[in-house]
């Protein structure tokens, strides 16, 4: 698999470290500490879809230290889009 890094271009999978589902970006609010929010933390930390098809997940491009969100297909391995989480610094 080859993933497009906005800084480095298309790079081999072996330069990347997998970072889990993109749902990890929706961090519960800082105030969500109470037990009432246990379910929210549980969902955030543990509950993941496992689709055969389109999915969005996080990849770290080690050489340039950029975290990416990648939209791809788990069956065909086609990559539809990538974006740097922090936007592209110029």
């Amino acid at each position: 698999m080859r993933i497009d890094c906005p800084y480095c271009g298309a790079r081999d999978l072996r330069e990347y470290t997998y970072g889990g589902a993109a749902a990890y970006l929706q961090r519960p609010e800082a105030e969500a500490e109470a037990a009432a929010d246990d379910a929210a933390w549980d969902a955030y930390l543990h509950l993941r879809d496992n689709p055969a098809g389109r999915t969005r997940d996080l990849w770290f491009h080690e050489p340039c230290a950029t975290w990416l969100e990648v939209e791809r297909d788990t069956v065909s391995h086609e990559i539809f889009a990538t974006r740097a989480l922090a936007g592209v610094r110029t």
């Binding site: 470290t17 770290f60 936007g87």
Partner: peptide
């Protein structure tokens, strides 16, 4: 830890002026 710091920065507070 390096990856973790980069992630915390880029994912949650990219507006902060900090580099590693």
């Amino acid at each position: 830890v390096m990856r973790h710091m980069e992630f915390a920065h880029q994912a949650f507070c990219a507006n902060l002026n900090v580099r590693f």
